[in-house]
Simulated scan of single mutants.
Amino acid sequence: MPSITNVGGSVTSALALTLLAWGFRLFRAAALRSDAAKKAHAKHASRKMSRFAAHLSPASLRLLVESDPFPHTIVDIRPTGAKDPLPDCLKESTAIPVRELEAALTPRKGNWQEAVGSEPPSPESTLVFVGDSQQDVKEAAVIAAACGYQKCLLFGGDFSDFDMDASLAPKKMLSRDATAALLGLVGPAGVCVDACVLDLRRHDERALYGCIPGTKHLPVDQIPAAMEMEDEAWKKVYGFPKPGVGDVVVMQCRTNRRAAWAAQVCADHGYKSCFVYKSGAYGWRLDPSVKAYASYEMGECPPEPEPFGLEVPDPAATAKELIELGLMRL
């Protein structure tokens, strides 16, 4: 009689080995997916917003659109077909959902040009992200920083009360002679309160056309981020102490457009004694080293300085103005 092989035992063993192999493969695939997810999370977590990213109030966002104090591009990062309409002042925003932002800002992919019909903004310009939530606009700022855009302004939230919340702080204007007195450049020493005068112009403007003695430099497009810095970080970045919310701060630019916007940002952060020097470097005319010049943007040919005659301060009018504003020690 021929021998009979224990077929059942052999099949059972084979089935067990097959199941064991499948289980190992499933376990290995799950482990690989988990490892990939951890690496992706770590990569995402390592990406941060630039130190020059900051939040805007409705009032500062509105004034940014209305006065256009520096080059910027407003990007609506909400999903396509968002339920709530944007306020009228933001109707011209560029619509790019946050999930498509990285591809749009990566030059080699060309998605920005396809979506918008123009070249993407320069990395030196400021991107202003508006969205439905703080989380979404922060994510947009992280993506932008990874794509080389260091200056981002953020507004995330409910747009239903935007117009009501966008009321502007009253402007406190200061004359040239009063500004010079606060800097200790005219009049008797020690009669004015201490003040910090911030020159908001670009580096090239100060280098080419001079700066008012005693002013501190802080480019206007960095004001929102600077306001959110701790004192130590401010001093490390800008080289002078951060003014306190109770200090007198004077904003100065070429004329007063950038200064007015910066004053609104400061008011949003609790500064009660923030003034705008209304004539700017263009109207200084107390010092030949501070030249008058026409407006120009970065990348344009700088204009020739304009001739002017030196002028003399009016001590009586200056003292009257400073007393009325509470800026003179009595």
Rank of each mutant, 00 (worst) to 15 (best):
M1Y: 03
S3Y: 05
V7A: 14
G9Q: 13
L19Y: 07
A21I: 10
A31M: 07
A37N: 08
A42H: 07
S50F: 04
F52T: 09
S57C: 05
P58A: 11
L64I: 01
E66S: 07
S67M: 05
P69F: 01
F70R: 03
H72D: 02
V75H: 01
P85S: 12
L86E: 03
C89E: 13
K91N: 08
T94M: 03
A95P: 06
R99S: 13
E100V: 00
A103I: 02
K109Q: 14
W112S: 08
S118G: 08
S122G: 06
T126H: 01
V130I: 15
S133Q: 07
Q135W: 06
D136W: 04
K138T: 15
A144P: 08
K151C: 11
C152A: 15
L154T: 10
F155K: 02
D161R: 14
D165P: 00
A169E: 06
S175H: 07
A180N: 12
L183I: 08
G184D: 09
A189L: 10
V197S: 02
D199T: 04
L200I: 01
D204C: 04
Q222T: 14
A225T: 04
M227Q: 01
G239H: 04
K242R: 11
V245K: 15
A260L: 02
A263I: 05
S273E: 12
V276A: 01
K278M: 07
S289W: 01
Y296Q: 09
P305C: 02
P307E: 12
E324Y: 04
